[in-house]
Design a protein around this nucleic acid. Structure first.
Lengths: 207, 207
DNA sequence: TGTTTTTATGAACACTGTTCATTTTATTTG
DNA sequence: CAAATAAAATGAACAGTGTTCATAAAAACA
């Protein structure tokens, strides 16, 4: 039966269409302000049809969440490739993380800021395992740095949380427009300087 | 005319009632899920009445925003009082900032995470001057540390942004439930450790 | 008391997410 | 090919949202 195969393909394709429309609308005007009817209009179907492919609006968000994490993981892998020195690898990892955050603000939001729909979603455990994998990547690089004599005898997880918090803080302060208190032409520079200073200080802390 | 004085008082009191009801509802169920009708029900008035005291739902949020910042400033002032050593003052400032964030999650959100309604609000400039004042407080403390020989010859603003990002990162990762990837009993400890490690490393970076 | 000003109401509007009986389209069977 | 079945799409309906506004009630003034 080639028919059910084609049907399956069509189903996947339709989901793709919905997700693409949804992502672009979420990026433009945010999750809350995007209605199912908006998405339906873009793909030229009725609102009800969306519910044949996704249980509800949150499930669309969840699907995008999964895709966004796989893209971040790719960006992070790119960051640790090609850097021989472990500390340089850590620096590059942070830079790629920030780059991803700035280039995909709504997706970054989805992964690390949004709470509203995620909590009520029953997939409590499973939903965060993507995030866990990304954090493991950071821990590996930190472990390599420690083997090379950095961070004295600090706890790996403690250092990793510290590094993560710093880059996440930089990312969210900017994405959520809290850097407006600085003159526009200085904002990016200030963030880059803060990150550079952080790793500089971190580098001096060794055995 | 004592009448218009009383009317003024009544108006203020009514605004207070609305704000108190709104704050408690926002804290309970968030901004988006709280309706004007919900607020009206709590204060036992009709929904339309709210609009005689606040232009729209966003203006209620804005009023709470102002109050939240003044509370944070108080918390921060408490942090820098009574600490003679400048570096201890910085440590205490960060701790009090985090304490405020954890004790007032929805208000912290409002001040440093929310964007949706704030952007469309026309008060672009004025709304952030509260945040600027808080940041100035941090810069003062950092300046004192530098006078005492800390941070070598780094730029004050760069160091301040770095410190702010770190604590903001810790706060938001936790408030937005991204620490669920850690076992529950370790979460708070991990955040405290990360902060402690950060200031420890920072302290070693001196002339 | 009668008039004017202030305050409160609740119906109405256009929107939201979601469901479901109905209709349209596609596939399989006789 | 035609009839029966299965799958897909629709659009009306429901209960909710923020907001507006003519009307009604209350208070203040004359």
């Amino acid at each position: 039966m080639g028919v059910i195969d084609r049907k399956e393909r069509e189903k996947v394709e339709m989901k793709r269409q919905i997700l693409d429309a949804a992502r672009s609308l979420f990026l433009e005007q945010g999750f809350e302000k995007t209605s199912i009817r908006n998405i339906a209009e873009v793909i030229e179907y009725s609102a009800g049809t969306i519910y044949l492919y996704f249980k509800d609006k949150n499930e669309i968000l969840f699907a995008l969440h999964v895709e966004a994490f796989s893209a971040l993981m790719q960006a992070m892998q790119a960051g640790i490739m090609g850097e021989a020195d472990p500390f340089e690898r850590l620096i590059s990892l942070g830079k790629h993380y920030l780059k991803y955050a700035f280039e995909n603000p709504e997706l970054y939001d989805l992964m690390f800021v949004m709470t509203a729909p995620m909590e009520t979603l029953e997939c409590r455990e499973e939903i965060w395992c993507d995030g866990e994998r990304a954090f493991e990547t950071l821990k590996f690089v930190v472990a390599d740095c420690m083997k090379a004599g950095y961070f004295k005898d600090a706890d790996n997880e403690t250092i990793s949380v510290m590094v993560w918090s710093l880059v996440h803080g930089l990312a969210t302060l900017h994405l959520r427009r809290r850097t407006v208190i600085f003159p526009e032409e200085k904002r990016i520079q200030l963030l880059e300087d803060a990150y550079a200073k952080f790793v500089e200080i971190l580098k001096t802390y060794k055995k």
